[in-house]
């Protein structure tokens, strides 16, 4: 183990071991569920491995969407005797994994689109505020012979476009 990996492992703490233990228990004690869930939630697993941001917001959304799409197959597994055959049967139907994976893809897409939309809304609001302030400033400058808008204010006005 490299020193960096060891440091990362140390930072993750005992949670990793608990997760591994739970996963191991699930695989051992409920193998059909583990197989079905593992396949259905494969994108979430991939995101789990790739999303290193704090709090893992993308994983959270993708996982929630994946779980939402996995509720019905899992329920079918548990009501169908909870066997490996049922699990594989459910997985053999392409629709279940496709729906689960699509839902997780949609979740990932939402995590990318919604921030963009929110940012656009915030920038629009900022622009409106700048325009109002500049108008007020211009009015004062005209009324009292004060200097017109300087570099700072120009920057403020221009910033939403340039950045």
């Amino acid at each position: 183990m490299t020193r960096k990996a060891a440091t990362a492992a140390a930072r993750r703490g005992p949670g990793l071991w608990v997760q591994g233990l739970l996963c191991g228990a699930l695989v051992t004690l409920a193998t059909p569920t583990a197989v079905l869930a593992g396949v259905l939630l494969l994108p979430a697993v991939i995101v789990h491995l790739m999303d290193t941001t704090e709090g893992r917001p993308i994983l959270r959304t993708v996982l929630l969407f994946g779980l939402a799409a996995s509720v019905r197959p899992l329920l079918a597994l548990w009501t169908g005797g909870h066997s490996m055959a049922t699990s594989l049967s459910l997985l053999s139907d392409v629709a279940a994994p496709a729906i689960a994976w699509s839902a997780q893809g949609a979740g990932w897409l939402l995590t990318q689109l919604i921030p963009l939309l929110v940012r656009l809304a915030l920038e629009a609001q900022s622009k409106l505020e700048v325009a109002g302030l500049r108008s007020q400033r211009d009015r004062l400058a005209t009324e009292w012979g004060l200097p017109a808008a300087g570099a700072a204010t120009d920057e403020a006005v221009d910033s939403p476009k340039t950045r």
Binding site: P57, R60, V62, L63, A68, I114, P115, L117, V118
Partner: peptide, 15 residues
Amino acid sequence: TALRLGQETAAVIGL
């Protein structure tokens, strides 16, 4: 803010 708010919103939708 937009990123945080957007991801929170997406999570809420997922939930």
